[in-house]
Amino acid sequence: MNFLRTASSLALRPSGHILTRRTALPATAFAVRYLSDSTKKTIEDAITRNKLVVFMKGTPDAPQCGFSRAVMQILTVQGVDMQNSLKSFNILADEELRSGIKEYSSWPTIPQVYVNGEFVGGCDIMLSMHQSGELEKLLLKEGLVEPEAEENPRA
């Protein structure tokens, strides 16, 4: 590593500006950063402009992974309007987004669910919130599902 650092600073000595930037590199070289400014902006715009955002493998109609499919099923069962209330990103179609979202959320797996700009969790958390009733509460609070109509026993 020392050898590398010396080599690169020697090579870059002519430009002081680049040299300072370069010398900062080895510290971050191991924790490779994937999140570019443009990807970060894409993510931030998406989660601030949409109440419900899912970063997933595949599309809501054709999920490409069981975990992504499970999240779609949970949201459908909860009564979310999948056409109009859900914004989804197919990370399989965008390699930069795929690695970028993991870094942005500090979360190692896909799918990832955001509600009202906040990271809620992945498939495990969605499933446990679905079972505990927490998810229904959250979706109701954010207006993503309609309260269930009062039960009117048919006469």
């Binding site: 500090s106 190692p108 990271f119 992945g122 958390i125 919130m129």
Partner: peptide
Amino acid sequence: TTLQKHRMVN
């Protein structure tokens, strides 16, 4: 919270 627990495990 569940999210905090999962983050610890991650």
